[in-house]
Structures are given as C-alpha cells and as structure tokens.
C-alpha cells in the first residue's frame, strides 16, 4: 500500500457507502476500459494499463460470465447504421476473453421493434459465441404489441409469470427480473406484486452468505427518474436482499456504464452493443446519441463479471468494442 500509484483509487465507504469523487472517476473510466472491484468493502479502481501490469491476477475466479445488453437489432438510424456489425464485434470480444465466460446474460432490448426477423438475426449471431448458455430478461423493445407473448415463446421457457426466474451457478444465486411490463402513465419501470412475492419466496431459504446476482433491463436504482431511468418498486425487491452479504445488480437500458455501491449492494449498468445514449440530463432527451463514426466502438461494450469464492463481492469489468 505504500507505493500506491496515482491511477489507483481507494474509497473507504464504511460510513455513507461511496466516496463521491472517487466514484465519479471510476464512472468516467468505465467507458474507456476501466476496472472497478469491490474487495472487503472497499471499492478499488484500476486503469486498464495497471490491469496489464498486474498480469490478470484480479479478475480470475471460479465463475466468470459476461453481460451484454441493448443489441436493438433492427435499429438503422444515424447513431449506428450497422447494429449487426457491432453485435458481431461484441461477440468476438466475448470469445477473446482471457478467462473464458461460462455463460452470458442478455439484459434486454434484444430487438428494436419486436419483429421476428430481428430476434432471428440476434439468435444467429449469438450462435457464434463460445459460451453456449444465454440467460435473457426482456427490455421494453422486446415486448411491443403483444405484452411479451412472442418473447416468452422464444426465451421464456422455464420462467415464471411474465418471464422472471432464478438459477444457481457454483454457489452464486442468479435472479432474472422483468420490469418493462404494465408501465403506468408518468411512471417508471415496475416489477409488480406477483413478481415481488415470488422473489421474496425465492430467496427466503438461502443462506445469507450466498452471493446474489440480480439482473433486469431497467436499472433497479434511481439513475435519473426524469427520463424514466429507475424502477418504482425496486426498494421492495432490495429489501428482500438485506440479509445477504454480497448483492450485485446488473442492468441495461441506459446505454452507458455506471456503477454505484450502497451497503451490501453493487449496482452496475452495461453499455449497449448498438448505440450510446447521453449522460443523465446532458441532452434534451435520452434518444440515441450520434458520435463521430470512428468513436462509436469506444462507447459500445460488453461487461465481464468474475466471482472468486470467499471474496466479498464480484468483480465487474467493462470493456469497450474499440
């Protein structure tokens, strides 16, 4: 600890959870390939160059998986006329990871307009991924027109209700939630009574030492309610997870990486593989953001997650497609 370089940040958050300045720096790096890790209640950030020096020591664990999000197949506007190409690049990245991913999570907005051919195209591209198991949750763009009937037929086998489910991998308990249905005028994303009740029951018998990963499309924390970037009944869901020592929440929807630590919970949003959206409040609307063509791949990305047994939390690494 004596030879700490200036690129490394240590944030002690015994009191309010987060060191604001350090957290913002961690966020700023995320788009350009940063690495943020929770170790024993301390959030540490490293630049990618430091990671290389460390020889990949951090990030190797017993369970390694990848999150991709917001592929928006069918989108063809100026912000990215080639979402097929960028999704393929994302899958190339996944296949090239030094620690192979055992499976993938897709956190929704698979398609842009819920068209069968859009889902077909994504399915075809994902067949080229090394990890063969893919776990999905729907985005609002996947459940247009039919309240999710088509989505459930394609991706919802063995799920409950509108598509929620849980599973276990090497001692980690995963919970996939649906918060894009039955949206009310003026409201945010919503989980609803039935799903919350199912979730309470699902975690009741788990030991508090079980690491939990919750994944859903719309953020389960209040990122920016003015743009609908939050879930109105997420507090109830998180209340069921209070007893657990390690909870990691993975979301998409906002097409940019963000991270927040609150007590035992680490919240993280993944980049899109299709197009970026503006930072909260930095544009008149959250619509697709056009960046110069040569910069596009630097604002799209994948998220790599590693779990080391016995360590406090999971390590979440964003890397861009550039």
């Amino acid at each position: 600890m004596t030879a700490k370089s200036k690129d490394e940040l240590l944030h002690d958050h015994n009191h309010d959870g987060v060191d604001r300045r350090g957290f913002l720096k961690c966020m700023a790096w995320a788009g350009t390939g940063a690495f943020c890790i929770m170790q024993g209640g301390v959030l540490k950030s490293y630049s990618m160059s430091q990671m290389a020096q460390m020889g990949g020591k951090v990030g190797k664990g017993e369970l390694s998986f990848v999150q991709i999000s917001d592929s928006h197949m069918g989108f063809n506007k100026a912000a990215n006329p080639d979402v097929v190409g960028t999704l393929k690049t994302a899958i190339d990245k996944v296949n090239a990871l030094s620690t192979p991913a055992e499976f993938m999570l897709h956190t929704g907005d698979i398609s842009h307009l819920s068209k069968p051919e859009e889902f077909d195209t994504v399915d075809q591209i994902l067949k080229g991924a090394t990890p063969k198991d893919i776990f999905y949750v729907p985005g609002e763009h996947d459940m247009l027109n039919d309240d999710g009937k088509q989505y459930l037929e394609r991706y919802g086998k063995n799920t409950k209700g509108a598509g929620w489910y849980s599973f276990d991998k090497k001692g980690v308990h995963f919970i996939g939630l649906v918060n894009v249905l039955n949206l009310k005028a003026g409201g945010l994303g919503t989980l609803g009574h039935d799903q919350l009740e199912w979730m309470e029951d699902d975690v009741k018998h788990l030991k508090s030492s079980t690491p939990i990963v919750v994944f859903a499309h719309i953020p389960l924390w209040s990122v920016y309610p003015e743009w609908g970037w939050g879930t109105e009944d997420s507090a109830q869901a998180l209340a069921y997870l209070k007893k657990f020592g390690s909870v990691t929440v993975l979301n998409g929807h906002i097409h940019q990486t963000m991270q927040k630590v609150e007590g035992n919970v680490t919240f993280h949003t993944a980049a899109s593989t299709a197009f970026p959206q503006p930072e909260p409040g930095k544009a008149p609307s959250p619509g697709p953001m056009k960046v110069p063509a040569e910069q596009l791949k630097s604002v799209l990305g994948i998220t790599d997650v590693n779990y080391v047994h016995g360590q406090h939390a999971l390590a979440v690494v964003d890397s861009s497609l550039a």
Binding site: E140, A185, G228
Partner: peptide, 12 residues
Amino acid sequence: YEYFCSIHPKMT
C-alpha cells in the same frame, strides 16, 4: 383524454 407512451411512460 389523458394519454402516454406505453414504452416511455414518462411521456404524457
């Protein structure tokens, strides 16, 4: 008649 966007319910 109040209405909203069912995809982006913040829009009313």
